[in-house]
Simulated assay, not measured.
Amino acid sequence: MSLSVRSLNGDSSFLLIFSPPAAPHVLSSPGFFPGSFTILLDPWLVGPSIILNSIFSHSEQRGKPFISNLKKLDPEPDLVLVSQDKPDHCHRETLSQLPADTESTILAIPSAAKKIRSWKHFRPELVHALPKYVEGDGQSVYRIVLPPPSPRGTCGEVTVTWIPARRDISKVHHAIGITYRPPCTVLSMPSPMHYIDLPMSPPPSPASPMTIASSPRTIVPSPYNDREKTLSVIYSPHGVPYDDIRPYASSYLVSESALPLTALLHSFNCVENPWWLGGNISAGSPGGLEIAKNLYAKAWISAHDADKENRGWAVKLTQIAQHAVGEVKKMLDEGTKRKVLPNTDVVSLGSGEQHRIEVG
Rank of each mutant, 00 (worst) to 15 (best):
M1R: 10
M1A: 14
F18M: 08
A22K: 13
H25Q: 15
H25D: 15
G31N: 06
F32E: 08
P34C: 01
T38Q: 09
I39N: 01
D42W: 06
P43K: 04
I50P: 04
S54G: 07
H58K: 09
E60M: 10
G63S: 12
G63Q: 12
P65Y: 03
I67S: 05
K71E: 13
L73I: 05
L81R: 00
R92I: 11
S96I: 09
A108F: 09
P110K: 02
S111H: 12
A113P: 07
K115V: 15
W119G: 10
W119F: 06
H121C: 04
R123Q: 13
R123I: 08
P124W: 08
L130S: 02
V134Q: 11
Q139I: 00
Q139M: 09
Q139C: 10
S140Y: 01
V141K: 03
V145A: 13
L146N: 06
P147M: 07
S150G: 11
V160N: 00
V160A: 02
W162P: 00
R167K: 13
D168V: 05
K171E: 10
K171R: 10
I178G: 00
T179W: 02
Y180M: 04
C184L: 07
V186P: 00
P190M: 08
Y195M: 11
D197C: 06
P199Y: 07
S205W: 02
S208P: 07
I219G: 07
P221S: 10
Y224F: 15
D226I: 15
T230R: 04
L231D: 01
I234M: 01
P237E: 03
V240D: 02
V240C: 00
R246W: 08
P247M: 02
L253I: 00
P260F: 09
L261P: 05
T262I: 07
F268A: 05
V271G: 03
E272I: 14
N273C: 13
P274D: 05
W275E: 11
W276R: 08
G279V: 06
A283C: 12
G288D: 04
K293H: 13
N294V: 03
A297M: 03
K298M: 10
A299M: 01
W300V: 04
W300Y: 10
I301P: 00
A303M: 04
H304G: 08
A306V: 01
E309W: 11
E309Q: 12
Q319V: 15
H323M: 03
K339L: 11
L349M: 05
E353D: 14
I357G: 02
G360D: 13
